[in-house]
Structure formats: C-alpha cells, structure tokens
C-alpha cells in the first residue's frame, strides 16, 4: 500500500503526528487547495506557531494555511461497494486528518451498502470524526 508522503520538503518540515508537534522556525510555501485558483501561500512559523500568512486571496486560504501547518486535513472522496456489485460515490462529510486517509479507505473498503442509496445518505458514521455520505443515488 502506498504511504502518505509527509516528508515532501525534507529540508524544511513542519508537521504533526498524533499529539506530537515538530517545532521549527521556518517559512513554509504551500499551494492552497481550497479552490481552483490554487494560490501560492507563504506561512511564517515561529516555535511551531503560525505567525504570518501571505499570498492568499481569501479568508479560507488563511484558514487552510494555518490548518495545513498545524493539523493538515483532507476531504476523502471514494466509492463504497453496493450489494448489487457496483460502486456508489461517497465522501467524508468533513475533512479528516491527512494521515488517516488510508485508514478511512480501509473502513470504506470493508463496507457493503444496501440499496437504495440517495445523495446525502450516511453509509458509515464516525470515521475519524466524519461521516461517509453518498454523493450519488441508485436504486431509488
């Protein structure tokens, strides 16, 4: 199985595994993923705390920059197999910690959903603080 690449920028790295934080004084360069504009962000870190953010064009970019340096999160979109043998599209209804993505997949892979399924149905609950909801419908 593929591993998350937490060590993408080996020379200047700031990330957190579980409760442990790695404290560095550094500038991190990020690409904002909140919207398709993909702004280039600069984040100043002092003693592990975000002290300045630049490059963002909206408030959400600022939030993203802060989160990405303290607790990076991702919305996971995937499929769940249904009882008819075909998959249905699903997503986490809120972002999950980035390092949990593959654990989310493990739980999702085991699940077989019964039909019908409608957009918004919760197919799995409490997955790292998120629900897995259907994003498409079938068998209605």
């Amino acid at each position: 199985m593929a591993q998350l690449n937490a060590k993408r920028q080996p020379a200047k790295i700031y990330f957190r595994i579980g409760e442990r934080s790695y404290d560095y004084n550094m500038t991190r360069e990020l690409t904002c993923i909140v919207c398709p504009m993909g702004c280039s962000l600069k984040v100043e870190l002092t003693d592990g705390k975000v002290t300045a953010i630049s490059g963002n064009t909206c408030k959400r970019g600022e939030e993203y920059a802060e989160n990405e340096c303290t607790n990076p999160q991702r919305t996971v979109t995937t499929t769940i197999m249904c009882e008819d043998g075909a998959p249905i599209a699903v997503k986490t209804d809120r972002p999950v910690p980035k390092e949990k993505i593959f654990e989310v997949m493990k739980l999702v892979n085991k699940k077989v959903a019964s039909l019908p399924v409608s957009v918004g149905d919760v197919l799995l609950d409490d997955v790292f603080g998120s629900n897995i909801v259907a994003t498409a419908s079938r068998g209605e």
Binding site: M1, T79, P87, M105, N109
Partner: peptide, 14 residues
C-alpha cells in the same frame, strides 16, 4: 491470453 483489460476489483487494497 493474459491481455486482461482490468486486473481486479476496487476495494481490495490491504
């Protein structure tokens, strides 16, 4: 022969 279009199903990753 072995010219399979698909090599397995999804949801089979460990």
């Amino acid at each position: 022969g072995e010219s399979y279009i698909n090599v397995g199903k999804t949801k089979e990753a460990e």
